[in-house]
Design a protein around this nucleic acid. Structure first.
Length: 560
RNA sequence: GCGCCUGUAGCUCAGCCGGACAGAGCAGCGGCCUUCUAAGCCGCGGGCCGCAGGUUCGAAUCCUGCCAGGCGCGCCA
């Protein structure tokens, strides 16, 4: 059920036939039909669709584009019913106008589909995994993680709507050097709390949160590990702290409306031998050598600038080695598309990882990495530096408290991932009421208000099949219906490109057209048939608004 | 030095698989509430699309070179 998609396909086919017919008649000479587009023109006065076919043909045909367009029109059979007229404009575009009531057909179907309006079977049920956030479990979530959470969750939602079977995964970096540091820092705090002099490593974790964590640890076990074997002491501290930190992360994400299907432990890859196995397989493939007591991956064989260490001279595998094993594991789990949402500071890692996966004989094209640029925080005109070690950062929890979940999520998803994001805290606090998300939510609340009033007055909701759509003759009514009809195309486009910000654009445009309609047309009119038709339009708008907000992880309030 | 990202209205950003006069929000100015929520609607002002070349019938969009900002180039993760 996608009337726009259907009519576009018909038009494209008709255009191809027209070009072929003109060639056979000897009017247009060309060897191969070039790629052309059929798109919605920016200026709505130009019609509903426009094609540049005559323009792109000009290179081969060697005639003025407008002349070519004339020839095409001569042989073009317009799909009917649907397309009302075609005309040549500008340098040689062909503009098409649909019959005014064409888009109104979509309305009954929207009501029938309800929550699933906008969904498609594009993904054909293929398994896709989206891994995102994957924050270090040694602290709290910061603004960069928040952006990743909003973005990753929206992408996962959109893919699910487009017919993929989606798994959301959080990779827990619970191994390696940082955990060592974490352990030493915890140990120092533990000893300090028990009155023993101890120092946190220079590059350790100095945040106040560890003091509190250690205090809770002491409430449970007291000074039991004061004189214990240091490695046991650290192990107990780490396992306690990680559990607590992860629970906090999970809670913060849930408060942000983000849930994961799988929490995948890096340590489990070491424990299961997967890391060792991966290194051995790379070795067998001939891409590993030893130098200075370490094992190196021959990344230069894949065009990289330099080789990478897999196993350090102290015998411990690197994060890189574990990440290769992790991604191999993803392939083994059968995902057709493997999508990672990474901060731009990891971009150097992308091609290295892909090289290693190629060395293992895996189809690297199945791995898609969305790099998002980092978030810079401003306060009082100054940059706030974020650092786990110094404990100075604004957390996701604070963000949600300050600006609200809906506003924060909308804001993060509104920007394309490539854009650097300067987040002005003062602005976010003061302007939260002017956030564009309210514009969209307000449209939804207004609709609910109309429906409440209708119920109060004992007005029945229309039966879609019996509504006379012909009564919707006003331009705002038809434009709103057209925008509603576009929704499935927009979702599919966002899924293809992994660009959720297309949906915030769409949501804004839809809300705008509704507000105009609301101002111009009275829904609860006296005339029952017109009222029923407008109620149908309003109900379809509500469904579409709700569905698009849902995909973005933003609530659709009934009152504001 | 090398690599990736960004540079569009006062501010924050769309548009960038080339196309028809460059768009939106916020901020500014002026109108609109006796009937469904004014968190709204209508109108106005505001832009050498970082700079310079090139390709093209046509460039914000593609190519090259500069300039500016961010990030990366660890036996860190």
């Amino acid at each position: 059920m996608n009337i726009i998609h259907n009519v576009k396909e018909q038009l494209v086919a008709a255009l191809k036939r027209a070009a072929t017919a003109a060639r056979q008649a000897g009017i247009l000479e060309f060897t191969e039909l070039p790629d052309f587009v059929l798109e919605v023109p920016r200026e709505k006065a130009r019609g509903d669709f426009a094609t540049n076919l005559a323009l792109v043909l000009a290179a081969q045909v060697k005639k003025p584009p407008r002349r070519i367009a004339e020839a095409l029109l001569q042989y073009l059979e317009l799909p009917r019913p649907g397309v009302a007229e075609a005309e040549i404009a500008g340098p040689g575009f062909i503009n098409f106008k649909l019959e005014p009531r064409f888009f109104l057909q979509a309305l009954p179907a929207v009501l029938r589909l309800g929550e699933s309006y906008g969904c498609s079977n594009m993904g054909k049920g293929e398994k896709v995994q989206v891994e995102f956030v994957s924050a270090n479990p040694t602290g709290l979530l910061h603004m960069g993680n928040a952006r990743g959470a909003a973005l990753g969750d929206a992408i996962a939602n959109i893919l699910a709507a487009a017919g993929y079977e989606v798994t959301r995964e959080f990779y827990i970096n619970d191994a390696g050097n940082q955990i060592e540091n974490f352990a030493l820092s915890l140990e120092a705090r533990y000893l300090q709390a028990l009155g023993v002099e101890a120092e946190i490593p220079a590059d350790g974790y100095h945040g106040q949160d560890l003091v509190e964590t250690v205090n809770r640890f002491i409430e449970q076990v007291g000074d039991k590990y004061l004189n214990a074997d240091p490695s046991l002491r650290r192990e107990m501290l780490v396992s306690f702290a990680l559990e607590e930190k992860l629970a906090g992360i999970r809670q913060a994400l849930e408060d942000f409306g983000v849930y994961f299907d799988v929490w995948f432990s890096e340590q489990s890859l070491h424990d299961s031998g997967a890391v060792a196995q991966t290194i051995a397989d790379l070795q067998r493939a001939g891409y590993v050598y030893e130098k200075d007591g370490a094992l190196w991956f021959k990344a230069t064989a894949f065009g990289e600038g330099k080789d990478e260490v897999l196993v350090r001279s102290n015998g411990l595998p690197t994060y890189f080695a574990a990440d290769i094993a992790y991604h191999r594991n993803k392939f083994e789990r059968g995902f057709k598309r493997i999508i990672n949402i990474w901060g731009a500071d990891h971009h150097g890692h992308v091609s290295r990882l892909k090289s290693a996966l190629a060395a293992l004989g895996l189809e690297v094209d199945r791995l898609e990495i969305v790099l998002m640029q980092l978030v810079r925080l401003f306060q009082g005109g100054e940059i706030l530096r974020m650092s786990k070690r110094t404990g100075q950062y604004v957390t996701l929890q604070e963000l949600v408290e300050e600006v609200g979940r809906d506003a924060a999520r909308y804001f993060f998803v509104m920007l394309k991932p490539d854009s650097h994001l300067d987040f002005d805290l003062d602005l976010a606090r003061s302007q939260s009421a002017e956030n564009p998300v309210y514009y969209v939510q307000y449209a939804h609340a207004r609709i609910c208000s109309i429906l409440r009033l209708a119920a109060d007055r004992g007005i029945d909701l229309p039966e879609p099949a019996t509504v006379n759509l012909e009564l919707l003759r006003e331009p705002p009514e038809q434009e709103l219906a057209k925008k509603i009809a576009e929704f499935p195309e927009v979702v599919a486009g966002a899924a293809r490109s992994l660009e959720p910000h297309r949906l915030t654009r769409y949501a804004h445009d839809l809300a705008e057209l509704f507000h105009v309609f609301y101002t111009e047309c009275r829904v609860l009119a006296d005339e029952p048939d017109l009222r029923a038709a407008r109620l149908l339009l309003v109900l379809a708008t509500r469904i579409t608004l709700r569905n698009v907000l849902n995909l973005l992880g933003v609530t659709a309030p009934e009152r504001m």
